[in-house]
Amino acid sequence: MAKIKQKKQSSDEWFDAVVTNGLSFLHSSVERLENDAKFAIIDLYTAIELFFKARLMKEHWALILTKPDEANKVKFENGDFQSVYLKQAVNRLEKICGEEFDNAAIENFNALNGHRNQLVHFAHTDFFHGNSSVVIEHWASWYYLHNLLTEQWRPYFESYEDKFQQLQRKVNKNKGYLSAKFEALKCQIEIERKKGNEIEECPSCKLESAVITKTYNWGHDIECLVCDVKKLKLKDIRTEIKCDSCKKSMEYFMLTDEFCPHCSAEITPEYALEQYSYLYEKEDPDCLIQDGCDYIAYCHTCGDKKPSVVYVDGLWVCVFCEDRGWTATHCNHCDSFVTGDVQRVEDFACHRCEDEVRDDILAGFN
């Protein structure tokens, strides 16, 4: 077997090369989905494995090898090695990196792998009998992968976010197969309504086909009958603020990007926070928007140094990361007004002072 020689590269260069390769397979998958679903499935699963390997490489390049204890940098650079499959990659990310994955996402990726194996190693009868179920799983796989790359793995893939969003825009245009399934499921959707189940628009395929399975104060769990996506859909926040440019009102938390829907002026989170602060001042002129004010809390999720959580539409919502549903309370130790687990804040400390409190406790044992 002829050896493959590749140029010497740094760890960052190898990471970029793997991500770029994954992106090329994603583009191919999206472009082929309508007319050549078979290769779209193969390309998408290949991309999924590549991104899992790229995430492993962020810890150490040897982790993508089936036998890391036999790692050889020269062989790695020449492509002379066996790499992990998805199951191994997931296992290592969970046990070594402390990652936690959505079970529905991993199950979907594994199902896609099963279809891919049938296509590559034998044959897949669904592609010869007009069955669209496999194509629908393709949509769900892209949805879960996109969420993984832009949310959970955002710190590792942030520099590629524009390319991910470009792909997302392409995917949103390829809905012919989803519309066909939606039409076929109209009777079933109506049966769900008659059972008393609430149906609403799916955040993934944008069709009115998502069954609400459980309701919380901050949103509800949904299962889409068309694209099979299962996720928590957060409660819509409708309180409006005015654009600084055109002065027209907009629902900031409902924007899909940071631009005014009327004049396309940029609407930054900092500006939105300022505007929601003004709303509080109108309701209570004696309230000072500063540290300790009972109207703006520190967010324990994004940990920003500036108070960024506002009380809107009956929920505490962070203007920066948009996490919602938590209770805001004063910390007994540092008196900061924060969100988080109230019991933990009262019994131990908040996210702003927990390190200091922990150090004080440990010092007491020395």
Rank of each mutant, 00 (worst) to 15 (best):
I4R: 13
Q6V: 15
V18W: 05
T20M: 08
S24G: 06
L33C: 12
D36R: 06
K38Y: 08
F39A: 07
F52M: 15
H60N: 15
L65I: 08
K73E: 15
D80I: 11
Q82I: 10
A89S: 13
V90D: 06
C97V: 12
E99T: 09
N103R: 14
N103T: 12
E107G: 10
E107R: 10
E107K: 11
N117T: 07
D126K: 15
F128H: 11
E137F: 08
W139G: 01
E151R: 02
R154Y: 12
S159H: 12
F164V: 01
K173M: 11
L178R: 04
K195D: 14
S204F: 05
D221H: 08
C227T: 08
C227Y: 03
K231W: 10
I237T: 02
E240K: 15
S245Y: 04
M254W: 00
T256C: 01
E258P: 00
A265R: 03
L279G: 00
E283S: 01
D286M: 07
D286K: 05
Q290K: 10
D291R: 05
D291G: 04
T301M: 02
W316Y: 13
T329L: 02
H333W: 06
D335E: 15
C350P: 02
C353P: 04
A363L: 13
G364C: 00
